[in-house]
Design a protein around this nucleic acid. Sequence first.
DNA 1: CAAGCAGTTTAGAAACATTCTAAACAATTG
DNA 2: CAATTGTTTAGAATGTTTCTAAACTGCTTG
Lengths: 135, 135
Amino acid sequence: MSGNSPDFTVSLRAAGLRPTRQRVALARVLFEGGHRHVTAESLHAEVKAGRMPVSLATVYNTLNQFRDAGLLREVVVAPGRSYFDTNTGHHHHFYVETDGELHDFPSDSVTVDGLPAPPKGTSLSRVDVIVRVRR
Amino acid sequence: MSGNSPDFTVSLRAAGLRPTRQRVALARVLFEGGHRHVTAESLHAEVKAGRMPVSLATVYNTLNQFRDAGLLREVVVAPGRSYFDTNTGHHHHFYVETDGELHDFPSDSVTVDGLPAPPKGTSLSRVDVIVRVRR
DNA sequence: CAAGCAGTTTAGAAACATTCTAAACAATTG
DNA sequence: CAATTGTTTAGAATGTTTCTAAACTGCTTG
């Protein structure tokens, strides 16, 4: 049988995206294993060597589309340093400033209390907590 | 009397920076009024017209030096969107995603509880809370 | 206060990340 | 399987930030 690898064709279609070869290949790399943090460049480098190479422009397009579809979460940690996180559940991040590493930590234990109301005319989109550490 | 404008020469020297004309001019623009959020470009535009114009490269250098000296705090909200905040005290930010505005809010009321210990071999640098909202 | 040194500023080039363009291509629909 | 529409692509363009090397300035010393 062949049911041991998720059908990305279906999930892409469900997200309103045509399941092209490139998008399926990227989805596989991103979602087949455990959670990952990638940059556009790192994902491009990873996929370029494989059997379905994808152009850098498409990697950017796809990451943005996946993010907009809620399949990925973008975390901006420093100017010119943007990560895409396959973990879209509630959680926060450690950022090791000295070497640019990003690590998840569960939000179970963390509580953010006493947030003021959003400015007039706006509604809450997300609360990001980034714990910056140095080695 | 002349004691109503802070002596930036002194504070720059205290920060280990030579009080050059450019740095004093930028310090005045940044610190003379209330708290501000600037980008390198916005600060450059503001100062370019005045009587002590400063090159863009120097604006970048100076913002980075002020940040390193603890005079400014850098807040990265989106790829290619970095603000410098003259408020270096404990506080957090609202970011209005739809129009790129950044607003402070006091951290008095906000508590972040239950943060896990920093990864082995690292020490805490800062905790950033960014509340993202949409208009 | 002139000379000299080290640190600073500058314009322009370079580096980097990201988006755009328009032409070739592939997925879908009938 | 032809038509349509959406997608991919290389390369150019944009935008931000850093680098370079030459000119300049603040500081110290005699």
